[in-house]
Amino acid sequence: MSVDYSWYLFLGAALFTIGAYGLLIRRNPLVMFMCIELMLNAVNLTFVTFSRMLNDIGGQVVVFFVLVVAAAEVVVGLGILVSILRRRPSATVDDISALKG
């Protein structure tokens, strides 16, 4: 008995919603970043599944680009985070609303 394609799709859907829920309820910006990574991984899993379903290598190439963009995003995001948290340690995303004029 082999694994049906839809199982991977359901797993990706579950992982994406867990990540989205975490992004909505957590206030630590670092953990919010990790939840974004969860959502990106769910999408990657779906892309690879579709790549196999449709017998097309293009899905895997897209996953490759998602990996690169995720790395760039984490680097810039953590840079911003470091410069914020250096001034205000233990800042949550609610405190960053102090940035508005």
């Binding site: 799709l9 359901f10 994406f16 919603t17 989205a20 017998n55 097309d56 290598i57 293009g58």
Partner: peptide
């Protein structure tokens, strides 16, 4: 929001699993 997206994504996954296979490959075949 999570419940809504669970419903939506599950419906999408059910629909996507019924996609007609064997279409010509867009780039290169696996």
């Amino acid at each position: 929001i999570t419940a809504g997206s669970v419903g939506l994504l599950t419906a999408l996954a059910i629909r996507a699993a019924q996609v007609s296979l064997g279409m010509p490959s867009g780039t290169r075949p696996l």
